[in-house]
Simulated scan of single mutants.
Amino acid sequence: MPDSRYSDLERPPLSETALNRALVRPGSLWTGVTVVESTGSTNADLARAAAGGGAGEGAVLVAEAQLAGRGRLGRSWSAPPRSGLTFSILLRPALPVAAQGWLPLLYGVAAASAVRRLAEVDVRLKWPNDLLIGERKLAGILAERADDAVVIGMGMNVSLRPEELPVETATSLIIEKAACIDRDPLLRAVLREIESHYRDWTAAAGDAEASGLRSAYLAVSATVGRRVRVELPNEQALIGLATGIDRFGHLQVESEGERYTLSAGDVVHVRTAE
């Protein structure tokens, strides 16, 4: 049966029942995990559900295959079925919108921590939303607002082989000889790390410094402390030293004696200039 979800034994399907049993419990942030065979975009699906009142905080949507995946600025993203982790979460933080710029960074810190621990690979974060191993991209993160909710999705390459990579600058856990390439424990670990960081951050009223989020982000940053080329709209570029992340999660760059503070919406791309 070539179309069976069990036809590729190296890429077994995820169990919705097992994930709910492990993650959904009284007092948990996670209120339900849904696994679908395929969809256009998990972010778009959860955003629609949020707008229609059909999804509350803690909803998780996982797709075994995503047909219209998007990154920042509408960049397309795709992968073979069950070769990666493609999922979105829905949050409704009762915090000022200005503080919520930290949410995709919080998600990145959590994902990097989980993967470093289970897969035993040196994952770093490129501002604002990429997980890297060396200079190669392992995962991308996209956060979008849906009324009073925030939907955050991630696509992580797990078992993609070299010939399946969408671009030469990508990588996967199996290519990096990771200690764990089982998607089930990886997904559980990422969601548990997100819950832990999210509770600390909301308890500190969105203060990234007081919650320890800013220091955790800087500890795994692949951007801060390096010379970068920041591509801006209208084909402009800024080259300088990435010196830090401010209290809103914005990137600080020093160039020719001037300090620039950049939000993710200001930037087309950030690359190292070394």
Rank of each mutant, 00 (worst) to 15 (best):
L165Q: 03
P185S: 13
A111L: 12
W102Y: 07
A237R: 14
A99K: 14
P166L: 04
A68R: 15
L90T: 07
R82C: 01
L218D: 02
L61G: 05
W127C: 06
G84Q: 04
S215H: 08
L67F: 10
Q252S: 10
A55G: 09
V158S: 00
R247T: 11
A18L: 15
E57D: 08
L173I: 00
A110Y: 00
G53L: 12
H269F: 09
I194N: 00
P166Y: 00
F87I: 04
R188L: 03
E10H: 12
T17E: 15
G101K: 05
L61M: 12
V121K: 07
S211K: 00
R192A: 07
E258C: 11
D122Y: 08
V267E: 01
V36Y: 06
E144V: 12
G225A: 07
D147V: 12
W102V: 10
A149C: 13
G212K: 09
V36I: 15
G54C: 11
A146V: 08
T243G: 05
V224A: 03
G84Y: 04
W30I: 10
G153P: 00
C180Y: 00
E144I: 01
T169C: 06
A98G: 07
A50G: 13
R11F: 13
I245L: 04
L103Q: 09
P2E: 13
S78V: 09
F87D: 02
G40C: 11
D45P: 07
R229F: 08
E164K: 02
L85N: 03
S78M: 11
E144R: 15
T31L: 04
E231M: 13
E231A: 14
Y6N: 10
S76T: 14
G58L: 08
A170C: 02
G32Y: 11
A68H: 12
V268H: 10
A44Q: 13
A68M: 03
V62Q: 03
L29H: 07
V60P: 01
E258Y: 09
A59F: 05
G153E: 01
R72F: 08
M1C: 08
G53H: 12
R72E: 09
N20K: 08
H197V: 01
I194T: 01
R229G: 13
F87S: 02
L29G: 04
T261G: 08
W127P: 11
D147S: 14
A219C: 05
A179E: 06
E163Q: 12
P104H: 02
E120G: 11
G27E: 05
A63C: 11
D148K: 14
P104Y: 02
P12I: 03
L23K: 06
A179R: 15
A111Y: 05
A264I: 13
A114S: 08
V158Y: 00
A273E: 11
M154F: 01
R21W: 07
L232K: 06
E120P: 05
G58P: 10
L165C: 03
L165V: 02
Q100L: 14
T42E: 15
G32N: 11
G52A: 15
Y217R: 02
V224M: 05
L131T: 03
S15N: 12
R136M: 03
I152R: 03
L160E: 00
A237C: 12
D147Y: 11
T261V: 15
L67Y: 08
H197P: 03
T202L: 00
A50E: 15
D147L: 14
R199K: 11
R72S: 11
V60I: 12
A242K: 03
E209T: 13
T171H: 01
E164A: 10
G265P: 07
R48C: 13
A59H: 03
L9W: 12
V121S: 07
G69L: 08
